[in-house]
Design a protein around this nucleic acid. Structure first.
Length: 185
DNA sequence: CGCGGGATTGACT
DNA sequence: GTCAATCCCGCGT
């Protein structure tokens, strides 16, 4: 399956966040392929979004969000975990989509090892990075051709929206329903 | 299952 | 020095 192309990521961030539900996130390891269907995302959009890392302007850490679409923005959080974002929209406009949850599809055994046998494999942004083996070495890699990419996956089912998680400090931006999640069966 | 608190480090005030 | 787009563990229900 071909990776999604750069024009997909160039669209409005809310549309990308919604469209990513049901797509397949793939990481080609030297030792094998790990993959999962995307179940939950959050949009971080524009220079005034207080919840976004980019709201104060570009820094060495956040400059990727200001760059061209279709690249991975990976950051360390709480000193212990990584989170994976995909950069969206045009160069100069800071925006990205955080991948928050997956449904494991390929490489279950490796994911279990990476997660030290936990039953919660990929149901959080830090957990899925640990399960798939994503760390800072992949920061800035091109998702349109590289070991890490996103492919068509399967048709998405019903999707619900809500406010973003963990952004209570963001003032009015805290309320925005920019979190997308596949409705549980 | 829900809650409360600790872990741990880099970026920025 | 402060705080963060989080997770884990232990405890109570």
């Amino acid at each position: 399956m071909e990776p999604l192309d750069r024009d997909f990521y160039r669209q409005n961030t809310l549309k990308v966040a919604r469209s990513l539900i049901g797509k397949l996130l793939v990481f080609e390891h030297s030792q094998g392929r790990l993959a999962g269907i995307i179940l939950e995302t959050e949009a971080y959009r524009g220079p005034r979004d207080r919840a976004s890392h980019a709201w104060r302007g570009p820094t060495p850490r956040t400059k990727l969000m200001f760059g061209p679409p279709g690249f991975a923005y990976i950051y360390l959080i709480y000193g212990m975990y990584y989170c994976l974002n995909v950069v969206t929209e045009g160069e100069g406009f800071p925006a990205a989509v955080l991948i928050r949850a997956l449904e494991p599809v390929e490489g279950l055994d490796r994911m279990l090892q990476n997660r030290n046998g936990s039953s919660h494999l990929t149901d959080g942004p830090g957990k899925l990075c640990q399960a798939i083996g994503i760390d800072q070495r992949l920061n800035g890699t091109d998702l349109t051709h590289g070991p890490l990419c996103i492919t068509a996956g399967r048709p998405s089912r019903k999707v619900e929206r809500g406010p973003r998680i963990g952004v209570d400090y963001a003032g009015a931006w805290r309320e925005k329903p920019w979190r997308f999640r596949e409705t549980a069966v």
